[in-house]
Design a protein around this nucleic acid. Structure first.
Length: 446
RNA sequence: GCGAUUGUGGUGUAGCGGUUAACACAGCGGGUUGUGGUCCCGUCAUGCGUGGGUUCGAAUCCCAUCAGUCGCCCCA
């Protein structure tokens, strides 16, 4: 029995839950369409080297990857994040030669990380992300953030905070790293063991430390902004100006460094401040990366900007803010079979209704008439179609409207026509527009 | 990887060493033999995450294990 449990940190998305996902996915695709981002689908596993790059010091690649050997002796890894695969694909498929640079892409799908599960953190989780590769323009940084912000707003989320920072270019970062090491040099032995490790591997990450956050040495820590080259500073100022112009609220967080090593210049994070989120409150995060394309063998100067959103976390945030995205799941018609001898006839009628586009179902358990009618209620069917001995004998059907209790009997051949006139395409719009009410940007509304 | 805490039917809970494993909801059947949503009656866990152990006796105690949750860490 216990062998058949799902693996730790995984989740079944059950039929009752999937409409929430569809709603979210539809909205994401709709926004990408309007912003002119196209979907890229890369493999769920890659050669391990795609993720494990020489200089990488992050926990994610060092101890959280699902790495395995395939039968051909290749070391493969289930992707822990989306950017590396997209960058690899960008190079491998020579998208840098595209007539339309930058290439604007999005992706959606599962990511795999061997971590201790908790709320908002699973071993298989889904990310939606965007990547814009092939141009370095602060307006693109702003565009990416704006896209994320618009999506979150359209979802109705409001307990959010945008955190922004810059890491500058290599020169800025080297200077800053040196300054940090100098700053911590004499006290590092008294700091937490994690920080001592970070000191060697990636001093910037010490800024993330919560253990030593209150220590005196943290309060006087040098700021990245004092080490930026003029170009880096100008770039960051331009990003801020762009966000100001779009009236996107943000706070500059000079401790924000992000976990992945490939980031340069702009880094940002959107966190939910709703207390029901738990400790995994980052809902969307990303930044600019200058060297990744070149690392994979692409041309120099192909800078990228991107972010990823944790879809489960978005769903948690929606729940926390009391926003319900699920569909009512109403049935157009439920066919009641009043006598076993009418089962085949009822089945034919159900099929006919479906062919005409009516979402229909019938009873397959030979349940009592009463139980079948209860199903009509439970499934919120607009119509109950009754088939029994009498109907079979007369080749007729009885149609009952649930809302006003009216009921008619018509020849079987008139079923669809009668349905059409009783339920005249009053809600046609619902069927064509999947973008959700309210803040829809699909342009189909008045 | 570390710490804490929880695990009883489809669901939510009670029981904390001897109960026929209790209650509610949902489901199913019936009262109303072809018209539901109310009401009434009946029915629904050889079973208490899994595996061991202690005991005359374990859902209750112990150990292990698996899983959930929360915090650390990390990150979306």
């Amino acid at each position: 029995m216990s062998n058949y449990q799902m693996p730790r940190g995984t989740q079944d998305i059950l039929p009752a839950m999937s409409s929430k996902w569809h709603k979210l996915e539809d909205l994401l695709r709709q926004f990408c369409y309007v912003y002119d981002y196209s979907e890229i689908r890369t493999p769920i596993f890659e050669h391990t080297e795609v993720f494990k790059r020489g200089n990488d010091s992050s926990d994610m690649v060092n101890k959280e990857m699902y790495t395995f050997m395939d039968n051909g002796g290749r070391s493969l890894t289930l992707r822990p994040e989306g950017t590396a695969g997209v960058a690899r694909s960008f190079v491998e498929n020579k998208l840098f030669g595209s007539a339309d640079l930058p290439v604007k892409m999005y992706y959606m799908g599962p990511q795999f990380r061997y971590e201790r599960p908790q709320k908002g953190r699973q071993r298989i989780f889904n990310q939606f992300g965007v990547e814009v590769i092939g141009a370095k323009n602060p307006l693109l940084d702003v565009e990416a953030i704006s896209l994320g912000w618009s999506i979150l707003s359209a979802l109705g989320l409001s307990d959010l905070k945008v955190l922004l920072n810059t890491l500058g270019d290599d020169e800025s970062r080297d200077a800053y790293r040196t300054a940090l090491k100098e700053h911590f040099k004499k006290d590092i032995s008294s700091m937490c063991s994690d920080c001592q490790r970070r000191y060697e591997q990636n001093p910037l990450r010490i800024l993330d430390c919560k253990v030593d956050a209150e220590a005196e040495i943290m309060k006087t820590v040098p700021k990245i902004h004092d080490y930026l080259t003029p170009e880096s500073k100008a770039y960051f100022d331009a990003v801020c100006a762009g966000l100001d112009a779009l009236e996107i609220p943000y706070v500059i967080e000079d401790r924000l460094v992000r976990g992945l090593d490939y980031y340069t210049h702009t880094v940002f994070e959107v966190v939910s401040v709703n207390e029901q989120m738990g400790s995994q409150s980052t809902v969307l995060a990303g930044g600019r990366y200058d060297g990744l394309v070149e690392y994979f063998g692409g041309p120099q100067g192909m800078s990228g900007i991107g972010w990823a959103m944790g879809m489960e976390r978005i769903l948690i945030a929606l729940e926390a803010e009391g926003i319900d995205m699920s569909d009512p799941e109403e049935l157009d018609a439920y066919v009641l079979c009043l006598d076993e001898s009418a089962a085949l006839e009822a089945f034919k009628i159900t099929t006919e209704l479906r062919a005409a586009g009516y979402r229909s179902d019938m009873d397959y358990l030979n349940r009592s008439f009463k139980a079948q009618f209860k199903t009509v209620d439970r499934r919120k069917a607009k119509a109950a179609i009754l088939i029994g001995e009498t109907e079979v004998k007369n080749q007729s059907v009885t149609i009952k409207r649930i809302d006003d209790q009216t009921q008619v009997s018509v020849p079987m051949s008139d079923l669809i026509d009668t349905m059409d006139s009783m339920f005249a395409m009053e809600d046609e719009h619902e069927h064509t527009c999947t973008c959700g009410e309210g803040n829809c940007t699909c342009g189909n509304h008045e």
